Amino acid sequence: MRNATLRQLKIFEAVARHLSFSRAATELHLTQPAVSTQIRTLEAHAGATLFEQLGKKTYLTQAGAELLPYCRAIIAQFEQADTAMAQHRGIAGGRLDVAVISAGDYFFPQLMMAFARRHPGVKLNLTVHNREELLEQLSDNRTDLAVMVRPPLHDTQNDAFAPHPYVIVAAPQHPLAAPGREPIGLRELVRHPFVVRERGSDTWHSMEDAFGTRLDELQVAMEIKSTETIKQAVIAGIGLGFLSAHTIGREVAAGSLVVVPAERFPLMLNWYVVHRREKRLPPVAHAFRQFLLEDGAEWIGRLIPTAGT
């Protein structure tokens, strides 16, 4: 094992965590053959097979299971060393690791660039996830900061920094999109088909807040994991959509989507910046957190005009 590299150990840990070469490749931004090559090289260093394939499933061998905790300990030591050295580099030489839920990818790169312009030399790393993946990023200590709507209730520091409105949208030809309509009640809304995000997503939980007990009456025409695909389905007339107002600015401006006037809407929630409570944030992450708390709401308001205005 003395010739094994940190890169090989990180690839092994990702494959072991997912029990999937393809998912590990996606996470690490590598091709699947590149992951397989690195695992074979590590196995040669170890003198043992680390994974076995039974049918379509990947499993750790006994040797792989024994290596995994040592591998994670080594990776953790390197990360701790990097964090310690970051204290000496300060903000300018630091790397900012941020993970956001999917609605954030419509504006967050610009927000990070606004921060980077204040602090030249900062290296930026942004990843976009659904809620479940984002919680894994936090629990596995693979990101310094997470930005989301519904933070965990335990073991994290959660700070609201900007409002996050949700609205009902429709294609312009939809009967509820007629101009000059009075706000529509939930009883009438649930009579119409909806295109929705998957259950368990932040958007689905926000729908639970908005519709309450009437959510069970909702007619789900399609359940889709992609906000972009939901918008296209709504534009095509498949149903109404329940979306973050931060994701629809272009379509509303172009006239391809209309915000439906509805009682209790927009549903006003908040963006939160989240980190593990016991984590010692590197200077760059601490500075970015302060940037969000002090200026995040103003920047988001500047980048994303209120839908329908």
Score class of each variant (00 low, 15 high):
residue 246 H to D: 11
residue 278 E to M: 08
residue 105 D to W: 03
residue 116 A to F: 06
residue 190 V to T: 14
residue 209 D to H: 04
residue 77 Q to E: 08
residue 197 R to F: 07
residue 127 T to F: 01
residue 120 P to Y: 07
residue 17 R to D: 07
residue 121 G to I: 08
residue 184 I to M: 03
residue 245 A to E: 06
residue 81 A to H: 13
residue 256 S to R: 07
residue 182 E to I: 11
residue 187 R to F: 13
residue 72 R to C: 05
residue 7 R to A: 12
residue 259 V to I: 15
residue 15 V to D: 02
residue 249 G to F: 01
residue 207 M to P: 10
residue 133 E to D: 11
residue 203 T to A: 09
residue 5 T to R: 03
residue 46 A to H: 06
residue 136 E to Q: 15
residue 297 A to C: 06
residue 101 I to N: 12
residue 179 P to I: 14
residue 220 V to K: 13
residue 154 H to G: 02
residue 31 T to F: 10
residue 52 E to Q: 12
residue 84 A to H: 09
residue 157 Q to A: 14
residue 293 L to R: 04
residue 209 D to E: 09
residue 221 A to F: 09
residue 264 R to P: 01
residue 14 A to T: 14
residue 104 G to P: 09
residue 6 L to W: 11
residue 261 P to E: 05
residue 137 Q to L: 06
residue 237 G to C: 06
residue 155 D to Q: 13
residue 287 A to C: 15
residue 235 I to N: 02
residue 134 L to A: 03
residue 60 L to S: 10
residue 114 A to N: 11
residue 150 R to V: 00
residue 54 L to M: 05
residue 250 R to N: 08
residue 217 E to L: 10
residue 160 A to T: 15
residue 49 T to P: 14
residue 57 K to V: 09
residue 75 I to T: 05
residue 11 I to F: 04
residue 21 F to H: 00
residue 242 F to W: 02
residue 186 L to Q: 14
residue 17 R to Q: 10
residue 85 M to A: 15
residue 89 R to G: 07
residue 257 L to A: 07
residue 209 D to A: 06
residue 64 G to F: 12
residue 228 E to L: 05
residue 284 V to M: 05
residue 241 G to R: 03
residue 35 V to M: 01
residue 223 E to K: 12
residue 158 N to I: 03
residue 294 E to I: 06
residue 10 K to R: 15
residue 225 K to H: 09
residue 15 V to W: 05
residue 287 A to Y: 11
residue 143 T to M: 02
residue 32 Q to F: 00
residue 266 P to G: 09
residue 300 I to W: 00
residue 56 K to A: 14
residue 136 E to N: 15
residue 52 E to S: 12
residue 86 A to F: 02
residue 219 Q to C: 04
residue 274 V to E: 02
residue 185 G to E: 15
residue 55 G to L: 08
residue 270 N to D: 15
residue 243 L to I: 14
residue 59 Y to K: 07
residue 30 L to M: 15
residue 272 Y to L: 00
residue 29 H to C: 13
residue 299 W to D: 01
residue 4 A to G: 08
residue 9 L to M: 13
residue 247 T to P: 06
residue 16 A to N: 09
residue 147 V to A: 04
residue 183 P to S: 06
residue 61 T to S: 05
residue 29 H to T: 05
residue 244 S to N: 13
residue 41 T to R: 11
residue 57 K to I: 01
residue 282 P to D: 07
residue 6 L to V: 15
residue 120 P to W: 07
residue 199 R to I: 04
residue 44 A to M: 12
residue 149 V to H: 00
residue 116 A to P: 04
